[in-house]
């Protein structure tokens, strides 16, 4: 049974007077991978950042419309943004471990949210690293700096950090664009594994990657959501000529 987890209703995003997202309406299904694709500047990353209110950090940004997560509008007054971001984890383009040990990187979120007991933290760190397919590689050096890991390991560390607060949703903004093909393959494998427990929304420039790992794909162009459909359909027979032109490399 497919269930809607995130629902975007007429979302417009402005940076000052520039309208970077135009009336975006679509649903993200629970425990699926949804890929957002489109040329640079199309609004896909901006949309991703709307889902955990990251655009709040940009003073000139203004959001209209509603984004419902589990039925509640995250842009309604009185929403606990900290709780929202705990529920919506994020992984960025470049791995960005904090300048602290592997253990502390993963324990950072739970500690921030008030977990203090050592054994509970130990368990969370272990489970998160297992979940991010990194445990076996780092279990004997948890006290060493996270920045000492390889790029692919660092990215998996960031995924472990993101899932340590047990979010429902994982946002990934081009998580493999700085990684080599082997490390990319591991992350893709991991994403397929992660969707058993989390709902993943991923921005990617690599269309083959979107085709490989996502269940649904949304194509953005100049702030519009042009087409949103099941991934196999999007990459074989899209309805919109603009989607066809983009995925075949005629522009973008």
């Amino acid at each position: 049974m497919e269930k809607i987890l995130v629902s975007s209703r007429g979302v417009n995003l402005y940076y000052d007077s520039a309208r970077v997202l135009k009336d975006i309406t679509f649903d993200v299904m629970e425990k699926q991978v949804t890929a957002l694709i489109g040329p640079s500047g199309c609004g896909k990353s901006s949309f991703l950042r709307c889902i955990n209110r990251m655009n709040d950090f940009i003073p000139s940004a203004r959001v209209e419309g509603e984004i419902l997560v589990g039925g509640s509008n995250i842009y309604a007054g009185g929403v606990d943004v900290i709780a929202l971001r705990r529920n919506v984890g994020m992984v960025f383009q470049k791995p960005n471990p904090f300048p602290m040990s592997i253990y502390d990187n993963v324990a950072y979120g739970p500690r921030l949210h008030g977990v203090k007991q050592k054994d509970r933290l130990d368990e969370t760190v272990k489970q998160s690293l297992v979940g991010a397919a990194l445990w076996d590689e780092v279990k004997d050096k948890l006290k060493t700096p996270g920045t000492g890991l390889s790029g692919g390991q660092q990215q998996r560390l960031c995924i472990a950090r993101a899932i340590a607060t047990e979010p429902e949703i994982l946002l990934m903004d081009e998580p493999t664009s700085a990684l080599d093909p082997m490390a990319t393959a591991r992350i893709e494998e991991l994403v397929r594994e992660l969707k058993k427990r989390y709902t993943v929304v991923i921005v990617t420039h690599n269309m083959q990657q979107a085709a490989r790992i996502s269940d649904r794909t949304a194509f953005f162009l100049m702030g519009d959501l042009v087409e949103y459909d099941a991934t196999p359909k999007m990459f074989t027979s899209p309805e919109d000529k603009r989607t066809e032109d983009y995925i075949t490399g005629r522009f973008g």
Binding site: F235, T236, T243, T248
Partner: peptide, 9 residues
């Protein structure tokens, strides 16, 4: 080319 869309069809 790992074709997609019309090229794949």
């Amino acid at each position: 080319f790992q074709p997609l869309g019309e090229d794949l069809r």
